[in-house]
Nucleic acid binder design. Sequence first.
RNA 1: GCUCUUGUAGCUCAGGGGUAGAGCACUUCCUUGGUAAGGAAGAGGUCAUGGGUUCAAAUCCCAUCAAGAGCUCCA
Length: 629
Amino acid sequence: MPEEAPAKERKSLDERNQMSDLERLRHSTAHVLATAIAKLWPDAQFAYGPPTEQGFYYDVDLEHRISPEDFPAIEAEMKKVVKENQTFEKMTVSRHEALELAKSGRLAALGDREVESTFKIDLLNEIPEDEEISIYKNGDFWDLCAGPHVPRTGNCKAFKVMSVASAFYKGDANNPQLQRVYGTAFKNKTMLNEHLERLEEAKERDHRKLGKELDLFHIDEAVGQGLILWKPNGSVVRQELQNFISEHLVRQGYSQVFTPHIGKLDLYRTSGHFPYYQDSQFPPVIERDHLKSLADEGCTCGQLMNQMNDGDLEGFMLKPMNCPHHIKIYASEHHSYRDLPIRLAEFGTVYRWEQSGELGGMTRVRGFTQDDAHLFCTEDQVKDEILGCLELVKIVLGTLGMEDYRVRIGLRDPDDSKYVGKPENWDRAEEALREAAQTLGTEFAQEPGEAAFYGPKIDFVVKDVIGREWQLGTVQVDYNLPERFELEYIGADNKPHRPVMIHRAPFGSMERFVGVLIEHFAGKFPTWLAPEQVRVIPVSEKFIDYAEEIESALKEAGLRVALDRANEKVGAKIRLAQLDKVPYMLVIGEREKDQNQVTIRHRDRGDEGSVSIAEFRDRVVEEVQSRSL
RNA sequence: GCUCUUGUAGCUCAGGGGUAGAGCACUUCCUUGGUAAGGAAGAGGUCAUGGGUUCAAAUCCCAUCAAGAGCUCCA
């Protein structure tokens, strides 16, 4: 629902001066980059050039399309600037002087030009009246800049131009697109190299690469962008996760339900999803009779579009959320306060129309399955229910060893009137979320204005290998939908009351969660999740009989085991099993057969000696049942 | 959606206006083996799709589809 991004505040000079040493270095290196680009392409117009978490970038408007082939030349020019060890010299100027310089094209350039420094003029106009205006010079390169900088260009010796992509000026899609040249810089070459190595490692963990190598999932052009086909191996992982969470749902008093993938447009008119959020939904499926009568009336495509926008259509929609279906289950019977809370859970698949440029791997898709649930409770029960939800999230993340996440509480913006529900209820819900979050034992950030318009929420955010953050689990309090659907329960006073709804999804979506999990484990799933838990490797064909005995004994115990019958040497079979990241390899030969044993090799721990089949079986079964890492 | 880059065998990739290449995987044969690649033979591709230029297009041009990076967006 309409959550407006907080307007990016302009950094004050004080804040800028708090730049860390590394940020300062990177910002200065951005100037070195600009100097080099200005030398190579004097017509370049520069916009912003800030440091980032991974390095820095500088936005440039330039006729020439910068490509990776240009990087060596750019870096060579940068090296010259570093070698010259130019001083970063600060010059304080009046607004008028700065403007004159910009008009003569002198800013972000090596000298006067025939064109103005367009973006710098724009930026100048944004500087508050009372703020000091400064120009930083290194050599002949002058740039409008608040600083701060390192003393000399010689400090910027460990850098690398990383990539080039496009970006909208000021991040607004209506503005022209600039070329954003990314680079990174460190105090010294060693640290730079370490950073580059980390990037290489991250590439190896990428769930898209591992997903292919381990046959976890497939995305097929013929099926559609952003639609995940779970292959058998990936399905095992997902099924295990679903079983895991289902166990806890039972313990926590949830009821599991199943609902269809579509619903009538009327349902979504009531929920408010249609026609208002059409941009992020698949277009409606129009009923045959309705379509025919439209055709008979000579309705044009344009008119059809208008009807769609007005919501004046009959038909169905792929569900963008599970809540309306669950609400209808709740509303299908009368409820007493004694029945509450009612907790309806479903691994529910929803469909959303993400922009094509946004799709990627399993983390941003158009169809996904939420481990969703909706809790219907009284105002008094909200707090306990939130606690229960967080308990579940804690169990999930703890079991999987995912420690590297941050917790974000989205609160309402007190100055905004877009929120539904009574202020006193909001206060209570926000307080309940805060208290519940404290039980996590993790630090959490409270972000006013980040609540949904229908209620406050807690989000769990993790980072993927590239450093992108993904929202996984979420717990949201909702005052809106009970209102829209006029939900009721009968209270102790024998009068109807409105329940509060809580949406929660500890994994978020199975697709995104498994994607993040693949990277978290670098493809080496713990035994309970591993698609193949044990591979039996006979030393030669002579021992296949015994190997089959082992295979069936382990299968009998419920383990996922495979037998490598290939006509290959042990070394080759081991290698394959290692590449497939199978946790346990059992090497079977004459010795094992004679003594009725198996020799264990673990993918990480190596040779673990020989034990009886039964002992190995019991050990692994225990490991699986306890879901050890 | 926008900008740039990319699309050749199941996978990873080379090549490139004139009969389509390698490694791995696959099939068969030899080998019967002790902890990360034994040997040989074979099979496998309208070079993403559709147009155009050309005597000739996988190669050049345009469009479409898809992937990647980034930006915008994400109820």
